[in-house]
């Protein structure tokens, strides 16, 4: 077995190259964070860089580049469930009646109709 696995395991050079790449991406994300990109671009760019960095860690430090198969399937399944959890919770909250969410800047001044609210027109009873 060792001949094959020795071949598959690269030397410390690859680890050092990944480490330098991770440091460069960290410097990049800090620099871009200082620039305060407009709107949600800052968040998107920062997350994209984080995804690239984590891909490097998973593939080379955690050896998913060399050990594929079921290990990759486990990680992919995990990510699907993470996406489902975050995606569905956000979809639920974003499509709710606003006052059904915790009070925010936008809804703090709104009051639900209470005893003091103006009486609404009651439809006449059907004969």
């Amino acid at each position: 077995m060792s001949a094959e696995t020795e071949h598959k395991h690269a030397g410390p050079g690859r680890y050092l190259a990944v480490w330098i790449a991770l440091l460069l991406f960290t410097a990049l994300t800090v620099a871009l964070g200082r620039m305060h990109l407009a709107g949600s671009w800052g968040l998107l760019v920062a997350l994209a860089i984080a995804v690239v960095k984590s891909t490097l860690v998973v593939l080379f430090f955690m050896h998913l580049w060399d050990h594929g198969g079921a290990n990759r399937l486990v990680l992919a399944t995990t990510l699907v469930f993470v996406a489902l959890l975050i995606g569905l919770v956000l979809l639920d909250s974003a499509t709710r009646f606003p006052l059904a969410n915790p009070p925010t800047e936008a809804t703090m001044r709104l009051m639900p109709p209470g005893p003091g609210a103006a009486p609404r027109a009651v439809p006449a009873a059907e004969p």
Binding site: A70, N71, V74, L75, T77, T78, F81, V82, L85, I86, V89, L90, S93, A94, N101, P102, T104
Partner: peptide
């Protein structure tokens, strides 16, 4: 493989907090 399965549960543990972050950041 067993370690990857354990790490999957760890990722999902943190995913709950990342979800809380995403939700309250949206609000």
């Amino acid at each position: 493989l067993g370690m990857w399965l354990f790490l999957a549960t760890e990722v999902l543990l943190f995913a709950g907090l990342f979800t809380a972050y995403a939700l309250y950041r949206m609000l």
